[in-house]
Amino acid sequence: MEMTYRDALRQALADAMRDDPDVVIMGEEVGRYGGAYGVTKDLIRDFGPDRVIDTPISEPAIVGAAVGAAMTGLRPVAELMYVDFIGMTMDQLANQAAKIRYMFGGQIGVPMVLRTQGGTGRSAGAQHSQSLEAYVMHTPGLRLAMPATVADAYHLLRQALTKPDPVVFIEHKALYTMKEDVDLSAPALEWGKAAVRRTGDDLVIVTYSRQLHYALDAAKTLSAQGIEATVIDLRTLNPLDFETIRPHVERVGRVMVVSEGAMTCGVAAELAARITEECFDFLHDPVIRVAGEDIPISVSTQLESGSVPGPKLIAETAGRLFA
């Protein structure tokens, strides 16, 4: 059936809440308002205010309370309205949630999900448009999922809600209205596995979240020029499925990593370093990063879209590898 990314997320939450009475949602505007982006619409009607909890605007305590609830038997889904607010919560996320299992010698885990959304595309300005996944990926103990497709929006969230460790789940704000024809009852790809979305012999593009769609658009353009790309969607950044990437890199020998996050010390930087170390003898060119500019995001749509990769930049960059 045809559904949107937003509907798939809502369906995942509703199904998880039906299957597991310990799943509770807490965050700003998640109940009566239905979520700033409408993801939790009507869930308060179906599950009541004790399980869909509207909170004050207190991001550190929202995440901190989710940590405490997760340690004492609930499976909370805390919603952070924008990933840009993650700095507010970083102590509870990075010093508490991420380290509790380890510091306490394995006595207890923190099975919570922090749902949030990021990225450009809504002219939302410098404090509501960032791609901060590298902050999370740089913190051992936190799992990180970033769905690019409607089916993954559903399945990765369902899977996240069965995981024993804290999962940061970053949606992309520009994908909420994207529609796909999906069969949610079909078997899902395993958690932690990257998906090969397209196969070609000339170039490997490794990407995730909205940039997957830009990479696939670029791959079409490149195909018309006789360049066939393999496009890999990471789906989860922790765990990172390098074993799916490796054979394609070794087979093809040319790699681009595409990420919306700022280039310096970003996800693309980590992947480029990793691929270079692990697959050096197979590479014909340096691993190329196509990533966000090292600047804040502007509210001007022209400056906003110009500061992150798009299909044109991806295709042009790939073309230059073969010039």
Binding site: V24, G64, A65, G68, D91
Partner: peptide, 29 residues
């Protein structure tokens, strides 16, 4: 966990919101 000790904390105030979550869970369960 056996004695209900959800953890000492080296971040000043870091363990305070934990009890809000534990209170929610206690009421829920």
């Amino acid at each position: 966990m056996g004695l209900g000790h959800l953890g000492a904390n080296a971040i000043v105030g870091g363990g305070i919101p934990t009890v809000v979550g534990a209170g929610l869970a206690a009421r829920h369960k």
